[in-house]
Amino acid sequence: METLLAIAIGAVVTASVYLFLSRDLLRMLIGFILFGTSVNLAILLAGRIGPIRPPLVDPGAAALEAAANPLPQALILTAIVIGFGLTAFALVLVLKGHEALGTTSAEDMGEAEPVAATAPSTALPAPHRKAA
């Protein structure tokens, strides 16, 4: 079961990285979301898959018994919401970028870091032969 889940996570990672490498920012964003999902699943798996009872303390009992591991769940819960916020932020950025530049391709958004522009060579000229 665990092995199969690990393989499935690997598949999601593969798809997400493939989308991540796309030129289109929207596809990159989808890759980003899938990547987050796969990481959440990886955390769940790394916390081991044991009993499937939710981590709720039974009425009358004082301690948790024979239930799923609560720790990765707490981590994943916040990770989902944070990832959601980040995705939303990125989506707004993509929209604004499209509004300003008319493209959703990362390669065409060259204004912040121009690729082709070459700065003039800063090599020093020959040394002065005559001392001042």
Partner: peptide
């Protein structure tokens, strides 16, 4: 905080 964040981000869209 969650309600504020989600609505702040998505209502304008």
């Amino acid at each position: 905080a969650v309600v504020g964040t989600v609505t702040a981000m998505f209502l304008p869209l």
